[in-house]
Amino acid sequence: MTSILVFVEHRDGTPRRASLEALGAAAATGLAPIALVTGPGAAQAAAPLSAAGAKKLVVITGGDHYSPDGTAADIAAAVGAHAAVAFVAAASSAGKDLLGRVAGLLDCAPLADCTTFTCSGGVFTVQRPILAGKALVTVQSQSKVCCATLRSNTFAVATGGGAAEVTTVATKGGKVKVTGVAAKGDAKLDVKEAAVVVSGGRGLREAAGFKIVEDLAAAFGNAAVGASRAVVDSHWRPHSEQVGQTGKTVAPQLYVAVGISGAIQHLAGMRTSKVIVAINKDAAAPIFKVADYGIVGDAFEVLPALTEAVKQAKAAN
């Protein structure tokens, strides 16, 4: 059966959700997904990946440090060895980093951050946002191997697989080496992965104003804090939290914009959220044009009340 290679990120053998979604998208094409994993604990990913649709598992071993070009070479070699017709990964920082490297090695055209991914009669067709989501383009891959990254929170995870056959391959190694990772404090959720994002803007007046945003995020539990560029540029919040055209694109179940005007560059990063709530003291703020629900009012009055209400709702569940 024709196969499709999926690069899977994991933490000590537990696959990341975005990678399982990519595996689900691969399985949904009807081709046989081969999951490729690398790094400490990779072999432990066999069970969860089999359950999520992987027919085969390629475990890359050796190499004391992760090497992005080494991993790209390992992927390209596995594509060749299994005659895979496509390579997919989550559109995460690792996935984005690998896409062009692998596409270059295979001399194929890459397709980044796809929101649909289909294969019919051997031809891959995808849809992807361009101009920060201001337009959507549908394209057909004419490369011998379709190389794509898939947007997270967009594809369903597959269920009910059998036991994947496991092969082990030594890494080719690379020129660039990751020598360290300074993990974020207290395992904070990344804005791109959180089910709820509570973002704050200049309306919070100062860095300390974000206390009310953090409190609301904590009340939700599964939430991350986001920020507008204005507050990142003022150094109130780190760049890793910036949502928008020159920050991150997020699509959570619920996006709460607090004291954010809704500039076109900010909307670009959050307009595909499932539900948008805006809290702003200016009834004419453009953010209300994309919000499903709005409250016109002072964030410093509204947020503490909302935080209390969310806490009560969570306690009642």
Binding site: R101, P110, P129, A132
Partner: peptide, 14 residues
Amino acid sequence: TDRDQSAVGTMLSS
């Protein structure tokens, strides 16, 4: 910030 692919730099390196 038009195609939003992040691909040309990495492809170049390959």
